[in-house]
Design a binder for these strands. Structure first.
Lengths: 204, 204
DNA sequence: GCCGTAAGCGGACTTTACCCCGGTTGACTG
DNA sequence: CAGTCAACCGGGGTAAAGTCCGCTTACGGC
């Protein structure tokens, strides 16, 4: 055998320069985003401002939406940490239902702070929006559902549906207008409605 | 005043030639779609094959996604009719919960037959996917929910969430792969899960 | 330290969505 | 039936996404 800490699924670690460039690109992208908005964030401009070639940008992110996915991914880690090792009820230690409610509220807040990026991360050709390649949200919800007693329910599908009920409103159905004008109101409503939904679905 | 059947919200009816062209474009688009898939459906090609100018295409549909929205819109009318005046439980006459369950199953089936179009109809810049400008799905669901006794629940938001739970899986979270390989299976699962979800949410 | 090679890089090239504006035409008024 | 005007048409122009391929460079083995 070999002495490497190899997991056969992860084909190969990123080369050092590649990693450096990815970081560089993300940093520049974020900067351009806050300076002049998402519409100005073109692949050409990003390449030039990073001092890199256009080919590099596409190799790293594949598509324009990919850049926004990368940005989202980065930001999502904060939420992930709170979920994995923060204080309850968001973190471990509380009953599953409470954690699910807390997670929904946190995710809504997070998504509202990143709606613009998340919208641009959508890509009709390829599904799986809202951040990392493995839909963290969905996995977490599924895990929590597994720890409840829900009769013969199909937990896997339910997890997908709940993920959609959480992200969908902000990604697909609410106008940017409503979001900017009635922001806090919307957050309250979605949060409360999520709690109602979860409690109704999960009661015995 | 005037003797016209005017509703002040609809600014003006489409001019005759404009309507003719829209129909022509949609027909050609559908044809191209079945012949060679969505990727080949470019604005230029559509214009040329319709014998119309490129400008016309953009005036009528605004954006590439708009064409797919138009296509979807057209097809959605069939479902709409069944809902408005078809036999129960999809049509009027059954208890709201049953209608809601039936609607979800029908919508899933419909969406699965049009996933490709629906995906291409997504447009990160503007929300509201899946067909007509007024999200028919959402309105119907909201209407049905209103006819139930759901305590103090916020029915408006719940309608949005359920709409998302219905469309989201197919639009955002399931890979094209899973859809084509395990199609009928997926339809069954989503339909059954929808029924469970609705029954759990709506029981007293 | 040196070498072979696979991964990465760059930027010219192609394709395509989307904009613009001068000329045209349908629809309503008197 | 003629006039008026807003809406519509056409197709060339622009900019940005995405592709390609020859050159360069990191990195593991000797």
């Amino acid at each position: 055998m070999n002495g490497l800490p190899v997991s056969w699924g992860a084909p190969r670690p990123e080369r050092a320069d590649a990693a450096r460039n990815r970081a560089q690109l993300l940093a520049t992208a974020r900067q351009m985003l806050t300076e002049s908005g998402p519409d100005q964030l073109t692949m050409d401009a990003l390449a030039e401002r990073s001092g890199l070639g256009k080919g590099t940008v596409f190799r790293r992110f594949g598509t324009r939406a990919g850049i926004f996915q990368g940005l989202l991914d980065e930001v999502e880690r904060g939420l992930q940490e709170q979920v994995l090792s923060g204080p309850p009820p968001l973190g471990p230690g509380a009953p599953p239902v409470d954690r699910l409610v807390a997670y929904g509220r946190a995710r809504v807040r997070w998504l509202m702070q990143n709606t613009e990026i998340a919208r641009f991360a959508l890509d009709g050709r390829q599904p799986v929006p809202g951040g990392s390649q493995t839909p963290v949200s969905q996995m977490h919800i599924r895990m929590l559902l597994r720890h409840m007693d829900l009769g013969g329910l199909n937990v896997d599908v339910l997890a997908i549906q709940l993920t959609a009920a959480l992200d969908g409103p902000l990604l697909l159905y609410l106008s940017t207008d409503a979001l900017t004008n009635a922001g806090p109101q919307v957050e309250q409503n979605l949060g409360a409605a999520w709690q109602d939904l979860v409690e109704r679905v999960c009661r015995p």
